[in-house]
């Protein structure tokens, strides 16, 4: 068997499950996984085990292609060690691991027979893929984003603290009121609703720093240009001109942040809510 085919086949071990699946599964991760992610642990132990196993797997591949069986064996043994260690981390996931298959991979490498290695690698790889198909995405969503649940925002119009969802609702309602009043030609009420919307968007920016310590992330969505557009919207509204075209133009820019921010944060926030994380 040529080198190329071997690397391709070993790569397939990982791609396998995800290319075959035609639907996305999001299973609620087991509770004891909490122990390996923030806030309980800042070391991301589970994820580093994944990286380790994947690296050692590649170590076998790399060395067999170089016909260095000695080093290939070394990484097969390391892989087995990590695999067994990982299988003990989350009791609820015990069944997904088959330590015997890791042992068989070591033996296959010892036999220096490429076909045996391939078969054993695929068998072991399947255990990886099965778990990934069910949990990889949900774990990403549940653990890689700090929760919006614990964040309270103070509404700048009613001076009340509320959660993100409620705040979004209030902000959206003032946006809708602005549009309706504008279309009805009610300038005064449009100005009032509009200013409230602007204040609510402004106060929303204050929330970003509860998670982001780098200004760059915040600026990417609500930067200088965005804020000065918001100022302009405020000014046009309070000038009382009721210029629909102008207001709708500025609104389009003002609401661009909503979509951008939702693209990044909404899916994880909703999934977390469903998992009650």
């Amino acid at each position: 068997m040529g080198r190329k085919t071997l690397s391709l086949l070993l790569a397939g071990v990982f791609l396998g499950a995800s290319t075959l699946a035609s639907e996305v599964v999001l299973k609620k991760p087991p509770e004891s996984l909490d122990n390996y992610y923030p806030p309980k642990s800042k070391k991301w132990e589970f994820l580093s085990k994944m990286h380790a196993m994947s690296t050692y797997f590649y170590g076998i591949n790399l060395n067999i292609n170089n016909e260095d069986w000695k080093n290939a064996l070394r990484w097969a043994k390391e892989l087995k060690k990590e695999y067994v260690a990982t299988s003990k981390m989350v009791p609820e996931w015990k069944e997904y691991f088959k330590p015997k298959l890791a042992d068989e991979l070591v033996k296959a490498v010892e036999s220096k027979n490429v076909d045996n290695v391939l078969k054993a690698a695929q068998a072991l790889g399947k255990t990886c893929a099965e778990c990934h198909a069910e949990y990889q995405l949900s774990v990403k969503l549940a653990y890689h984003f700090p929760s919006f649940e614990s964040i309270k925002l103070e509404d700048p119009i009613e001076f009340m603290e509320m959660d993100t969802g409620k705040y979004m609702e209030k902000m959206t309602n003032s946006l809708k009121a602005l549009k309706i009043y504008l279309m009805q030609g009610d300038k005064d009420n449009a100005a009032q609703a509009g200013e409230e919307f602007v204040e609510r968007v402004r106060a929303l920016k204050g929330m970003c720093s509860k998670c982001h310590t780098s200004k760059l992330s915040v600026e990417a969505i609500m930067g200088k240009e965005y804020m000065s557009n918001l100022d302009k919207l405020g000014e046009v509204l309070s000038s009382g001109s009721g210029d629909k075209g102008k207001v709708f133009g500025l609104l389009q820019k003002a609401t661009s942040a909503c979509m951008k921010c939702h693209n990044v944060h909404l899916v994880p926030a909703v999934v977390q809510e469903k998992f009650e994380k």
Binding site: F159, R202, S209
Partner: peptide, 11 residues
């Protein structure tokens, strides 16, 4: 009428 001013909201 109510308004809130803060450094975080940049107003």
């Amino acid at each position: 009428l109510r308004r809130m001013f803060s450094p975080q909201a940049e107003n």
